[in-house]
Amino acid sequence: MTFKAIINGKTLKGETTTEAVDAATAEKVFKQYFNDNGLDGEWTYDDATKTFTVTE
């Protein structure tokens, strides 16, 4: 399945996608990506659209 992340950061904005077997796996991938890029913020997840949003 394809999962999307919308990034609303102070220094980084945009979208990225990942292929994962479930939402928990996708969340781990996205959180690692955000940690690697120095992002920290509020997380939400919309199961209907398979979209994570992080707002810094």
Rank of each mutant, 00 (worst) to 15 (best):
T16L: 15
T11G: 11
I7D: 02
A20H: 02
T11Q: 10
E42R: 07
T55E: 07
K4A: 05
F34H: 00
A20Y: 02
G38S: 06
A24L: 11
A23Q: 07
A48E: 12
F3Q: 04
G9E: 02
E56P: 12
V54Y: 14
A20E: 03
K13H: 12
M1Q: 12
D22E: 02
T51E: 03
K10N: 11
I7S: 04
K28F: 08
T53E: 03
A20S: 05
N35G: 12
E42N: 07
T18K: 02
N8R: 11
E15K: 06
G14Q: 09
V54L: 13
A24T: 09
A48W: 05
T16I: 15
M1C: 13
K10Q: 08
K4H: 13
T16C: 15
M1R: 08
I7Q: 01
Y45L: 02
T51Y: 02
F34V: 13
A23H: 07
K4D: 04
D47S: 09
F30H: 00
T49M: 05
D36G: 06
T49V: 04
T44M: 07
T51W: 00
T51S: 04
Y33S: 02
V21G: 06
A24Y: 08
A23N: 02
T44C: 10
T53W: 12
V54S: 01
E27Q: 10
A26K: 00
G38K: 07
T2E: 12
D22K: 01
V21I: 12
L12S: 08
T55Q: 08
Y45V: 00
I6V: 11
I7L: 10
N8Y: 12
E56C: 13
E27R: 07
W43R: 00
I7H: 11
V29K: 09
G9H: 09
V21Y: 08
K10D: 07
K13P: 05
K50T: 02
T53K: 04
N35C: 13
K31I: 07
T51L: 03
K13Q: 10
I6C: 09
N8T: 08
K31S: 04
T25A: 13
D22I: 01
A23E: 04
A5S: 03
A48R: 10
G38C: 09
Q32D: 08
E19L: 12
A24S: 09
E42K: 08
Y45S: 00
T17K: 06
T53L: 07
D36A: 12
T2L: 13
T51P: 01
D46L: 03
A48I: 10
N37Q: 14
G41N: 05
A24M: 08
V21K: 11
A24N: 07
K13S: 11
D40L: 12
T25G: 05
T53G: 02
L12P: 07
K50F: 08
T44W: 07
E42T: 12
G41E: 04
G38N: 10
G9D: 03
A23T: 05
T11W: 15
A23D: 03
G38L: 08
T17D: 04
D46K: 02
A20K: 02
V29R: 07
D22T: 04
A26M: 02
T53C: 08
T17L: 10
Y45I: 00
V29D: 03
A5R: 00
A5V: 14
A24I: 11
L12W: 14
E56Y: 10
I7Y: 15
D40G: 09
T11L: 11
N37T: 11
K50E: 02
T55S: 09
D47Y: 06
A20W: 02
G9M: 15
K10V: 12
E19C: 15
A26W: 02
V29L: 11
K50H: 12
F52P: 01
D46C: 07
M1L: 12
A48G: 07
K13C: 15
E56I: 15
V21F: 09
A5D: 05
F52A: 01
G41F: 15
E42F: 11
T49P: 01
K31P: 00
E19A: 06
T49F: 03
W43H: 01
D36R: 09
K31L: 07
A20F: 03
E27Y: 15
D36E: 12
T51N: 01
F30I: 02
M1I: 14
L12I: 11
F3A: 06
D46E: 07
A26S: 02
A24V: 11
E56L: 15
M1G: 09
L39T: 05
T44A: 08
F52S: 01
K10E: 09
Q32P: 00
T25F: 05
T51R: 01
D40Q: 13
Y45A: 00
T44N: 08
T51M: 03
A5M: 15
K28T: 07
T55A: 06
D47H: 11
G38P: 03
T17Q: 09
E27L: 15
V54M: 10
F52Q: 00
T25R: 05
T17R: 07
Q32H: 07
Y45R: 00
K50Q: 09
E56H: 06
A23W: 10
N35W: 14
A26F: 01
Y33F: 13
Y45Q: 00
M1N: 11
T2D: 10
K4M: 06
T44F: 09
L39H: 04
T17P: 01
F34P: 01
G9A: 07
T2Y: 08
N35F: 14
V29A: 08
I6L: 06
T2V: 13
K13V: 10
F30S: 00
V21C: 10
K28I: 10
W43L: 06
K28P: 02
E42V: 14
T2S: 09
F3Y: 12
T49K: 06
E19P: 03
F30D: 00
L39K: 04
M1K: 12
K31E: 04
T53D: 02
T2N: 08
V29F: 14
A20L: 02
T49E: 04
D22N: 07
V21W: 10
E19K: 13
L12Y: 14
D22C: 03
T25N: 06
A5C: 15
A26L: 02
K50N: 08
F34D: 00
